[in-house]
Every structure is written in C-alpha cells, then in structure tokens.
C-alpha cells in the first residue's frame, strides 16, 4: 500500500491544465504544438506563438485547412510589454468557416520574424507594409523593400516614437470669392 502522506498518481503532476479550444480542427492544432498558447479574445481564437515556432505553426495551420491568410500586421507596444513588437496574422478557413489569429513577439533591437510568404503568397504586400511602417524584418521574404513610403524615406512611421509630423496650420493670403 502506498503511504498516506503523499497523493498517489500514475504520472507526475502537470500543473494547471492547459486550456484548449473546443472546435476539433483547432483542438488538434493546439495539441500538436505545446509551446503555443490559446486565448479567447472577445469571441475570437488567438494563438500565442513563440517567435521561433512562427513558420512551423503556420505550416500546420495551413495544412489544417486555413487556406487564406487575410492579413499580417504589427502592433508597437513601446514599453508596455516586455517585447516591443507584436506581429499579428489573421487567418481564415473557408472550408471550416473559421477564423484564427496568430500572434508572436519581437524585441526592440533588430526585430525579426519568419516570413509567411512561402506558405501564403498573398501576404507579400502586407509584410512589406509591416516592414515599411515598423521596421520588422521578415526573414525569407523575396522582396523586402519599402512599399508605401518613398524609397529614400528614413524612419518607420507607425512606430510610437515617430511623431505624427503635423505642421502648424498656415493661413494663406488668398482672397475670398463670394
């Protein structure tokens, strides 16, 4: 007989049970990747992926039936979070009528993440825009150049430390026609 002072368990205690989504397609995805966390944000499923697993998880997501990557963008959290940049990818599955959001983080110095272009070619322009606006490098992107700003522009406009660039209102001396 086991002694009464310790609880008898077959396996070592695992800590709080990792939350998993209910939908079978999503559940299978999250079960395969242990480092990816699942969060429910206002009725939408979000996968919090570590930076190294970004491309690997994306492959699995595509194979699970998410044929369309709707958008890739970046949020600049400045000092509010330990890692400055949050890269967000929104995915859509037409077959299962599901949406999924993948997020990962990148630090302040030389932020970079794997590019999703080999998996979904349609995010080409979106990643170029994220690079242009935030300075996040997408490794493996075939043509990472500025897309919205002129080619010789310095700085990344949507970063929080880049000012709006507003000028004081100039009143012109043009004469009014009634």
């Amino acid at each position: 007989m086991s002694d009464e002072t310790t609880t008898v368990e077959e396996t070592p205690p695992v800590g709080p049970e990792r939350p998993l989504p209910e939908h079978p397609v999503l559940r299978a995805l999250f079960e395969d990747f242990e480092t990816v966390g699942w969060v429910r944000s206002l009725g939408q499923d979000v996968a919090q992926v570590p930076n190294e697993a970004w491309a690997g998880f994306a492959h699995a997501v595509r194979d699970a039936g998410f044929e369309v990557c709707v958008d890739v963008t970046v949020v600049d959290w400045m000092r509010e979070r330990p890692e400055r940049f949050e890269i967000v990818a929104n995915l859509l599955s037409m077959a299962h009528k599901l949406r999924l959001r993948m997020t990962t983080t990148a630090g302040r110095v030389d932020p970079s993440v794997a590019s999703l272009v080999p998996i979904w070619p349609g995010v080409n322009f979106a990643e170029r825009e994220a690079y242009d606006m935030f300075g996040v490098t997408f490794e493996g992107h075939p043509d990472l150049t500025r897309i919205l700003m002129p080619d010789d522009w310095e700085g990344h406009p949507l970063r929080k430390d880049f000012g709006v660039g507003s000028v004081p209102v100039q009143f012109k001396e043009s004469h009014q026609v009634s």
Partner: peptide, 14 residues
Amino acid sequence: IGYLHTGMEKTGEQ
C-alpha cells in the same frame, strides 16, 4: 503603390 499614402493609421491613433 504608395502614391496615395495618407498615414490614416497614424491619424487614427490621434
């Protein structure tokens, strides 16, 4: 593209 970039996402934050 980029010839009509208006910085609307930046303006949206203001």
